[in-house]
Amino acid sequence: MTLEQELPPDPAAVAANNRLGVTLQRGVSIVLIALGLYVVVQSLALSYYTPVGPGPGFFPFWLGLLLIALSAASVIASFVSKMPVVFEDMIIPEPAASAQMAINFVMVGFFALTVVPLGFVLSMFVVLLVLLLVNRVHVLMALAVALGGGLGASYAFSNWLHVYLPPAPYGALSAIGL
């Protein structure tokens, strides 16, 4: 793998990274405040209390308020506290690492989209092949692992454990028992 990276020794870069981290932490807290507001507003449409205890809207209402309070408090605390905040990793990875993360992410989405229409074996074969090639595994090795992984898992689950996995369309792979 060529993506190995060390934390940059440059103290200015580390300080900048920590500042970015604190800013983003506040950002997440603000998103949580917004989420809390949404939940509170939505919960108003649900009945709050019934003759035998809290109704469907009771807990969402109070949880929403609580989330707003806690997130607001942590935003305020981040301005008040003088304790240095340290982040282990670079918040924004190097472009190559970011790209690889994105491809991993997209391929899981590809699996979700195609597992039913294409069947498990074909869908997983494509996912594995792409991920292996992106990781710069040799083409032959990648083909072997992708085939072995997709077919192997499918065999183990369908034929051995009798767990249903979506088959390939038009019985394409029925000749080999899948």
């Binding site: 989405g109 997983m124 996912v127 990781n135």
Partner: peptide, 30 residues
């Protein structure tokens, strides 16, 4: 690692899908 990580992704996808045989759970996982 370059071979292990894709295989781990396979197991995560498979395991999530098998909960309900439903791709919806894979989206949730993502």
């Amino acid at each position: 690692l370059k071979i292990l990580n894709p295989l781990i992704i396979m197991f995560i996808c498979l395991g999530t899908f098998l909960v309900n045989n439903n791709p919806f759970d894979v989206w949730v996982m993502l």
